[in-house]
């Protein structure tokens, strides 16, 4: 409903007057020329961090370099980034007291059959993408995005969050990714000297564990963001 109102208003959108457009256009063009010149002046190949990275790859626990960077070398970035996702859910929940469920219709025969086929398939693919992240492009975020797609399909097909899923359990699911990440980071303090420093022989398993929890938690977060507001909380005054 709200989306419809918005799209109507978009057509009568006001746009800045032409002198402003001309000025802004001119300034933007100047910025573009400056940036283009700067990039043009870059040397075509460069002294690379990749060689340092290649030398440490065997200690990272995975063989795909992007996963190694995300989960091990710069795992702290990823921890904060999962924090950003969780923060976005908290932010949207703090904003909307209204129940924000999408308009749905009970699924027809074809849709129902398709879902029964698609949801397990998507879950399987997500599991594969998560597993493949160790040696090929993939990993928690990609797998989480796939699971999110399954979740959104279910929601759009009139699938309601089960009432038995307590609000508290839902919140636990949302924070579990960051919580397990913090737990893994902290447990290294007992074994090791530095936060997030995984011993090379266990690094692969620890990363897989973190990624598994992250995948589930990320998809829960993204589905919650898709809903755009907190689900009804029976028994609470808010």
């Amino acid at each position: 409903m709200q989306i419809k109102v918005l799209s109507q208003k978009m057509e009568e959108d006001t746009i800045a007057s032409w002198p402003i457009r001309l000025t802004v256009g001119g300034i933007v063009l100047m910025i573009a020329v400056g940036l283009l010149y700067a990039i043009w002046s870059l040397s075509p190949d460069y002294a690379e961090l990749k060689w340092t990275l290649a030398a440490s790859m065997h200690e990272s626990g995975v063989s795909h370099p992007v996963t190694a960077v995300l989960m091990n070398f710069r795992g702290y970035d990823t921890l904060l980034e999962m924090g950003v996702l969780l923060l976005a859910v908290m932010g949207t929940w703090s904003l909307t007291p209204i129940k924000a469920a999408p308009e749905t219709h009970p699924p027809g025969l074809v849709q129902d059959g398709l879902l029964r086929l698609l949801i397990p398939l998507i879950t399987l693919v997500a599991g594969y993408v998560l597993w493949a992240g160790a040696y090929a492009p993939g990993g928690a975020f990609q797998a989480g995005a796939l699971l999110t797609a399954a979740g959104i399909l279910l929601l759009l097909s009139d699938w309601q969050l089960p009432a038995s899923l307590l609000p508290w359990l839902l919140r636990l699911l949302l924070v579990s990714g960051v919580a397990v990440f913090i737990g893994a980071a902290l447990s290294m303090l007992w074994l090791n000297t530095y936060l997030l420093a995984y011993p090379p022989q266990w690094a692969g398993s620890i990363i897989l564990l973190i990624e598994l929890c992250a995948t589930v938690s990320i998809s829960a977060i993204l589905v919650a963001l898709f809903l755009g507001g907190r689900p009804d909380e029976p028994g609470s005054t808010i």
């Binding site: 961090l49 990275l53 440490s56 070398f73 702290y76 936060l195 420093a197």
Partner: peptide, 13 residues
């Protein structure tokens, strides 16, 4: 400095 993950710059943070 404290090298997170034990890697240290430039590879780590």
């Amino acid at each position: 400095r404290y090298p997170l993950g034990g890697w240290g710059a430039p590879l780590g943070i």
